[in-house]
Design a protein around this nucleic acid. Sequence first.
DNA 1: TCCTCGAGAATTTTT
DNA 2: TTCTCGAGGA
Length: 767
Amino acid sequence: MDYRSLLNEKQYEAVSTSSQYVRVVAGAGSGKTRVLTYRIAYLISEMGVRPNQILAITFTNKAAGEMADRAAKLVDEVLGYTPRLNISTFHAFCSRFLRMEAGAINFPTSFTIYDEDDRGKLLKNIGVELGYKKGDSFIKEASQYIGRNKTKGLYPEDITIKYERFPNEKKCLEFYKLYEQRKNDMLAMDFDDLMLRTIQILEGSDDIRRKWAGKFDHVLVDEFQDTNDVQYKLMKLLMRVDTCLYVVGDPDQTIYTWRGANQDIMLGLERAHENVETIVLNENYRSTKKILDAANHLIAHNKKRIPKDLFTSASDGDPILSSCQPKGEDEATWVASKIAQISRENRNEYGEPIFNNIVVLYRASYLTRPFESAFKDRQIPYKIYGGVRFYERMEVKDLLAYFNLMLNPKDNIAFERIINVPRRNIGDTSVDRIREEANQAGLSEYEYLCRIGEYMEVTNIPTRVIKKAAEFIAIVEDTKIKLAEKLEVYSEVLKKFVDEIGYMDYLREDEDPDEDRIKNVNALFDDINNFIDKNPNAEFQEYLQNVALLSSQDDISGGNFVSLMTIHIAKGLEFDNVFIIGMNQDVFPSMRSLDDNGRDGAEEERRLAYVAITRARKRLFCSCNESYSYITDSKQTPSQFFKEAEISLPRTSYYSTSSVWRSSGYGNQSSYGGSKPRPGSSYFGDGNAPDPFEKPKPKPAPVTTATNGITDWKVGDMVEHGKFGKGKVIEIISDKIIRINFDNEGIKTLLGSHPMLNRIKSEGGDA
DNA sequence: TCCTCGAGAATTTTT
DNA sequence: TTCTCGAGGA
C-alpha cells in the first residue's frame, strides 16, 4: 500500500516513524483517527509486527470497534488476511483481564459490574443502614468522597486520617469501608474497581505482570489528553523497557478533568521517557475557515496551553449564525426553523429531507426539553443520546437484574430491584427485614430466602412473603439449570422465564403509550442472540459484563434524524451542521464548574466550547435565551463565549434591555431564517396530531452469519442433535432461531448454528 | 402494602 | 418546571 499518497506529509511522518516513544499532538479535525488507524496497519504491513502484539486503547467502545474495522480492512488490502486486533477501552480491557486473572486476589472471575445507578442504590442502602434518611445530604457527601478517592486510586486501607480536613471526613471513611465491604460480599465491582483491581493484580504478582507485559510490543492510546493518573499507571504496568508507546491527543480538548483527566501526563511525557518524538498535526480538514477562526479566537483566551493555531486551506464558508431569543421555547423555535430549512435544501435521492447531518449540542441534558416539543411540532425527527440509554431503560434493567441474579445470587442490588417487580406484595418493610436477617445470617438476600427453612425459628418475615418468594425462587432455579445445560437458545430460555414470572403481563398492564417497553424487551433478546451468535464460546456472564460497559456513544447508529447530545458525548464526532444551544452565562460556562474550580474550571469550560465548535464541518449556529433562571434568580444573559469566539449576537429580542452585543459582523444575521419565529406557536398541526416520526428504536445489530453450523434451515429438514437425538424442523423463527420437534424430547427452540446440530436430510432431498 | 397527594428541592459533564 | 420523598388513608 502506498501510505505516502494516502496521507499528507505530517500524517505520513506520524504513521511511519520508528521512534520508541511518540506523541502526536493532533488538533481538532486534523485526521487524528486516520493517523492512528493507519499506524496500526503500518506496523503490521510494513514493520512486520504481529497483530496480537499491538494493544490500542480508545475512549469509547464504538471508537474501538470502528478503529478495529478500518485497520483490519487496511491490513487485509495489503496482506490478504483480516487480523484480530486488541482495541478496546481501558475499562473493557480490564474487564477482560479480570475475567482471566481475578483469582489472583481471590475474586471470582464471574464478578458483576455495577454501573452508576447500581452504585447509587448501594450507597443509599448503606446510608439507611447507618441510620441516615434516604435523602440525607451526608449520603451525597460520602458518595462524592468515595468517588474522589477512587479516581485517585485510593482504597479505604490506603487512607489514614490524622486530623479531619473537613467536618465529616472520618464518617466518610467509615462509609467508604462499608461500601467496599458490601460490594465485595456481593462479588461486584464498580467502574473504578475494574481499573484498580487490575493494577493491584499486576503490582502484586511479577509472574502475571511479566506475562501481560510480554504480550504487547506496541501500546497505542487515543484521546491521550483525557487519560487520568490511574489509567496511566495501568499503562505503564503493561509496558516493558522496550515496549513502544504511541499516544495521540489534543490538550485543547481535555474535557474530563472532573473525572481525573490530567493533561500534564501528555504535556510532560518527555519527563517520563527519554527521546520522545513529538509530531504536531495542525492542518484542519474538517471545518470552514470561519468556523475555525471562531474556535481559534476562543481557545486563545486560555492561559494554560501550548499555543497551536489550527489552519485550513478551506474556503470561508457560510457565516456563523447566532440568536438570542426571549424564552427557551423561542430559542427552540429558531433552531427548529433553521433545521427545517437545512433539511429542505438537502434531500436524498427520493426527494426526502435529510436530517442526519445535523446535531444539536448542549452543556447539560435538562436544556433539551423545549427542543423536543419544538421538533415534535414541526415533525422533525430527532434522537437524544445520553439521556436514558437503551440499557438503562427500566424494563431492560429489570431483566438484566434478573439475569445477573441468576449468575450471581449474591447480588443484593439486583435482588432488591426485582423482588417486587412484578408485584409480589413484598414491600419495603419486608425487604428491610430480609436485608437485616440475611446480614445477620451472613448470607446474601437471595441465598437467605433460599435457605429460609433453616431459619424458621428466628425469622420475622411473614409466611405470605416466604411463600411468594419460594415460588419465585423455584422459577429462577429451574431456569438456571436450563441455562447451564446450554442446549436451548439462551434467549428462548430467558424469554420463557420472563413469561413465567409474569413480567410481560406486568408490562402490558402498565401500558404507557409513549414507551415501547415490550419492543425494548424484544430488542434485548435480539441483542442477546446477536452476542451469542458473534461469540459462540462466550459465557453469558460476558454479555452482562459487556453491557455494563457500554456508553452513550455506543448506541449512536445511523438513521435519518437530528441528533441531540451533550458536548461530552460529541467528542470525536463531526457533523455538517452544528447547533450549540443554551449558550447562556452560568449555564455554559457552567456556574458550578466556575465555583468549584475557579480559573481551571473556566478554562475547561472553554475547551468544551472549543470541542463543540470544532465538531462543525460546514455551518455553525449558536443560540441563547433570556428567560428567567431558577438558579441565579434573575434573567439569563448571553455567554461570554460569544465575545471570546468573536461571534456577533444580533439583537433579535424585543424584551432585551441590556444587549451589549454588536449587531453587525458576519453578514446579515436574520436573512437566513426567513420569517421571524412566532413565540408560542408552531407551524404545523395543533400539537395533538399523532407524531408521524416514531422515536427511532435501538436498531438490532446487523445480522451476522454464524461462524460455524448451518444457517439455511428449511421447514421439514431432518436433524440430528448430539443430545436430543433425531427430529424435524417445524418452524423458522428468525434467520438464526429454529424450532425442532424431536422424536424423544418434544419441541425445542434452538440456535440454528448450534454445533451439536446436524442436518441429516434436507427438505425434499439429501443433505 | 399500595396509592395519592402536597410540599419542597434542585438543575453538569460519564467510562 | 419537574422530580422525589414522606405522610396519611384505603
